[in-house]
Amino acid sequence: MAFVLALVLALPCAGEAAAADRRSGSDFMAPETRAMQADDMSNPAMLWVADGEQSWHRPEGAAGRACATCHGDATRSMRGVAARYPAFAEATGRPVDLSGRINLCRRTHQPAPPFASESRELLALTAYVAYQSRGMPIAPPQDPRLDPFRANGGALYERRIGQLDLSCAACHDARWGQQLGGSVIPQAHPTAYPLYRLEWQSVGSLQRRLRNCMVGVRAEPYAFGAPELVDLELFLMGRAGGMALETPGVRP
């Protein structure tokens, strides 16, 4: 507790945090919320992970294939995969996030209709796959084909939008550690998605979180799956490169 307090008091509040000063959102949480994330028996998102494991083994689609039919044991084949997403998808010629990759795989290989954005099935399978990388450093792909999309994500991060005319950077780079209403502003490192948010009473994606912020500044949020949201995800994961993946996280 004293450590957490000391950390909060020591936070500098100007400019984007240098690599050594980067903090996961979990560093800003109350001790009880941190404990909830740390204990798999009390972390509610583990229910989604368990659902995702069942889904991994369930044959689906015209070919009657399960994820496991091709990918085998996820604890081996999926280890480290989430740490590298979003990645470049040959099929679309643009970056795709982990949920998008799962749906591409469903469409092309099972083949089965894609899961709806933010559906329990998609979040569960994504959480299960990402869980296999828990504790691993985020390792953004060095693929130069991603560069223009990452740059676009960075531009969107800096762009003032909405009736309140705010950018992501205005709060998460320049004012992290300070309080917006009763909430501490974190540095916006997406280290734990999909995650269980107490406010949502559910697991949700990074895209859902991005849309929440856009609604908060009274901007028209981009639709789930929109290229702008994937570009933002790509930029943010690059910015968080080297930080440990925590999926499935818990946040307030």
């Binding site: 762009r159 939008i161 909405g162 009736q163 309140l164 005319d165 009274r218 901007a219």
Partner: peptide, 18 residues
Amino acid sequence: IMPSNHRIDGLERVAAPY
């Protein structure tokens, strides 16, 4: 970062209700 509370120009992507 203070919003211009009585101004409607120069804004981008304002949500429909606003």
